[in-house]
Amino acid sequence: MEKIREVVGIDISKLTLDVCLHRNGGSFRTSNDYCGIEDLINRIFSQVEIPKEEILFVFEHTGLYSSTLIEFLHKEKYLFHVASGLQIKRSLGITRGKEDKADAKRIARYGYRMKEEIELYDKPSNSLARLKRLLSLRKKLVGQRAGYISTIGEQKRILDSDQEMLLFTSQEQIISTLNEQISLIEKEIEKIIKEDQELYSQYRLLLSIKGIGGVTAQYLIVQTAGFTAFKTWRKFASYCGIAPFPHQSGTSIRGKTKVSRLAQKEGKTLLSLCATTAIQYNPEIKTFYERRVQMGKNKMSTINIIRNKLLARAFAVIKRGTPYVNTMKFAS
């Protein structure tokens, strides 16, 4: 983006926005609300006399706290980039201390250095945004339910049920309530998908792949922003931590090719479950797995290959717009 003449770095916190203009050098703080953001825009244009098309806003993704700023900038058609905190941190090298004003300056410097490479933020549709929030809530409730089920199971095994009746019944009621709420959330998720023609089409295409279930299909749709945020399945595999990378240097370092620990762990977990399911119920995948194991190949390495196979198929069916066809059943 050669036309960019000023980069505005913003450090977002719950109540405030710390702002730094890279070339101008000005910095200030305002409130993290609609009025504060309007004040932010007015103060920027009072310091720099350039058109809005030549200003780039850069800030970290902070979930709920950055939503108002994203909504405002998108509505007013400003150029902005929402960056990964880890990406900014690593690009700046060694830093000492932490302060909101200094962080805003670092973000502005990052944006200015990377302005010709970074991609502008593409705000997801309202349906995708709602899906993401509901899936996040579902994940939290499922985790809480699992905790209560595990706890009450151990307690019933050890404690006297007559003396600890209240302990058991109260937890059972909580589990029942969580089951009801999870069910309601799942129904609302299905409703949102069915009401959006494009999302529903993608959802049905993903379910045509044996091994990929409803939760994983919903996760893939949300995390890829309807398969627009990642250009290839390999990039998303790297994001999920299932893409193998070499570990070699010169003649002395000859490490194993392995996946990176930098990963979106939820995606890795879901794809692992999909791979296990595919090994059990997909004859093609089962044959592939058994053949590699008989050859003495590592089981986890084989499972990782299957994870990548399923992900590649997911991107392929979306790109083609047609369901997955199991060619093995046509083989003679």
Rank of each mutant, 00 (worst) to 15 (best):
L166E: 13
Q163F: 10
E186Y: 06
L207D: 01
I185R: 04
G153S: 14
L207W: 05
V222E: 02
G214L: 08
S176C: 05
L178V: 11
V215Y: 10
S208F: 00
E195Y: 03
E164L: 12
V215L: 12
L184D: 10
S201D: 01
D196F: 02
G226W: 02
E198V: 03
L184H: 10
I193V: 10
S176P: 03
K210W: 05
A217P: 01
L159M: 11
A229Y: 09
L199V: 01
E186D: 15
R204Q: 02
I193G: 00
A217D: 07
E180S: 14
N179Y: 05
E195A: 03
E172S: 10
Y219R: 06
E154T: 11
Y203W: 01
E198M: 14
K187M: 07
A217N: 01
Y148P: 06
Y148V: 06
K191I: 01
A225I: 07
V222T: 04
Q181K: 13
S161T: 14
I158V: 15
E186Q: 14
E195R: 08
I221M: 08
G214F: 05
G147Q: 15
T177F: 12
K156M: 15
I182D: 10
I185C: 05
E190D: 15
D196A: 04
G226C: 00
I193W: 00
L159E: 12
E198D: 13
I174V: 10
D196G: 01
E195H: 07
L206I: 01
K187H: 04
T177G: 12
I149D: 05
I175N: 04
L167C: 08
G214D: 06
A217L: 02
L178Y: 14
I149W: 03
M165G: 04
E198A: 07
I192G: 00
L206Y: 03
S208A: 05
S161P: 15
I212Y: 08
Y203E: 00
I152C: 11
K156Q: 15
E180G: 12
I149Y: 03
V222Q: 07
G226H: 00
Q171H: 08
S183Q: 10
Q155C: 09
T216F: 09
A225S: 11
K156R: 15
I149V: 15
D160G: 07
S208D: 01
E188H: 08
F168M: 11
I152R: 06
G214I: 04
Q171S: 14
E172R: 12
E180P: 05
E164F: 15
K191D: 05
I212T: 03
L220E: 02
A229E: 02
A146V: 10
S176M: 09
I221V: 08
I158M: 06
L159I: 07
G211D: 06
S150R: 08
G147P: 10
D160N: 15
S170V: 06
K194C: 04
L178E: 04
L159H: 05
T169C: 09
G211P: 03
E198L: 02
G147C: 12
E186C: 04
E180T: 14
E180F: 11
L167I: 12
Q163V: 13
T224G: 00
T216S: 04
L220G: 01
M165S: 13
T228S: 03
S161G: 06
I192E: 02
